[in-house]
Nucleic acid binder design. Structure first.
Lengths: 156, 156
DNA sequence: CTCTCGATGTTCAAGGTTGAAGTCAGGCTA
DNA sequence: TAGCCTGACTTCAACCTTGAACATCGAGAG
């Protein structure tokens, strides 16, 4: 029963290999820009940026882990390092001691504000600029389709 | 001069965040399937699969590193582990001692052949199936656009 | 022939990620 | 109130990646 496999067609394979190459190269390129210009990784930026956009610049760690699609273990380590650098601080939720809040400090806010323009510039350079509105919309729908399928099949 | 920044529009930002989420989740999902079913990572699979499709099942390490978009250092470590597991072997290029060839063994070939159907199934499940031909073509052109821009701006 | 140089891999230390095990708070049940 | 029990982190060992430093090979210049 090996050969009821539905192999990829040429066009499907080429598209998949192009996406695989993107997954290998784009994170490294964005990491490099942020590390060089602001001393943080892309993942650090996601964490700080999400905090900066929330009320009180505060979020629960489990919520941050969910939004950034990472394990709680990884987030815990990242947050510990960011706290040691003074970019955020941790406090138990005063309403419920089981939760831990991450709170962006003034220094963290300043760093995000300073880092954002060059980061957005890199995202434009590498991804957005040069695409038509239609391509951008298709990119969104394809990426959402993929993450939904992963969520369905992966973690229930 | 901070505010000549071209921030992302809503549609651009949503598309970018969807792609970022894909980059965080899809590699982990494909790694999990391959590790569970075949005991190798997605990157291992790329290496073995590229070897299996080349004449003599042989490639130079530097060529493998280029094709898999990774550092030579990473590839060297991965190849060392795959060699220890008997899936490939290394030999100096007989025509030019500067080069090292990686050569797929019989066991490596068998493993790729055994792993391929489920891996292709996962790629279909997570990415390809459910997309129209047009979406697949746009995915390819967008991903190629991104990797070209990264190559231009990143490593010259 | 020898020297230098560029390109190819390898190694090593530093640091990051993972998954399993451990800790802790508060809700639920009796 | 006591005794689980679940969910939210934290920690730790094992493993992986990275980048810098180190060989090594062969080509080209003098």
């Amino acid at each position: 029963m090996p050969d009821d496999v539905r192999w990829l067609t040429d066009k499907e394979r080429v598209a998949w290999l192009a996406l695989a190459d993107l997954m290998l190269r784009l994170p490294a390129a964005l990491d490099a820009q942020l590390l060089r210009d602001s001393g943080i990784t892309l993942y650090d930026y996601f964490v700080l940026s999400n905090l900066s956009m929330h009320p009180e610049r505060t979020m629960r760690l489990s919520e941050l882990a969910r939004i950034t699609s990472s394990s709680l273990s990884r987030l815990s380590n990242v947050v510990k390092r960011l706290e040691q650098r003074g970019l955020l601080r941790r406090e138990p939720d005063p309403d419920n001691g089981r939760y831990t809040n991450a709170i962006l400090t003034g220094a963290g806010w300043d760093l995000v504000v300073a880092a954002a323009p060059a980061h957005v510039g890199a995202v434009r350079d590498y991804v957005i600029d040069g695409l038509t509105d239609e391509q951008i919309e298709t990119l969104r729908s394809v990426a959402c389709h993929v993450t939904e399928r992963v969520r369905e099949n992966g973690a229930c």
